[in-house]
Amino acid sequence: MPLRWTVNEFRGTPLRESDIPEGRVLSVRWDPNARYAWDAGIAIGRFLQGLKEGRILGVHCPSCRRTVVPPRIVCENCFRPLTQWVPLQDTGTVQTVSVCYVNWDASRRREPEFPAVIALDGASPGCGILHILGEVTPQTVRVGLRVRALWKPPQERTGAITDICYFRPL
């Protein structure tokens, strides 16, 4: 006959946040110091080159007739190579937006930032990219807001997503 499962068996020794810095338990710190150079690759490499030239590029799939951004070398629907490059508008519609008060390490920000998914004009419906909204307030951001990219001056562009400073209301 199996043993009855009882609550007394749950084990674990919770620590307080201060137990480690105050030395009540032993610990060791390790810094991986892991630095990377992430290759842009074929499709995104070309996309970044476009940004440097002030253009946002998508790719068109002749099979499912979608125009998608970010560009990719294969259509995940049809599994066919994508070779038709299409310039998109630098305007679009906010699909969703957040008003964010925390940083990546969970520390607080004094001023919020506004990450958003922006569906770009010229791409298939709902095909967006992640970027930041600017010149907005928590009161003025909303789903459906029409926005346009604010570009860095050409000489300051490096071929990076940050060549677009942010998107701002039209």
Binding site: Y36, W38, A40, G41, I44, F47, L48, P70, Q95, T96, V97, S98, C100, V102, N103, W104, E113, P115, A116, V117, I129, L130, H131, I132, V143, A160, I161, T162
Partner: peptide, 22 residues
């Protein structure tokens, strides 16, 4: 994404906040 998204200063909560809002 390391090239298109992380340079914007992402944090994990963004995707949840964006999905929840949508």
């Amino acid at each position: 994404d390391h090239t298109l998204e992380r340079p914007l200063g992402t944090n994990l909560l963004w995707i949840f906040a964006l999905e929840m809002h949508r």
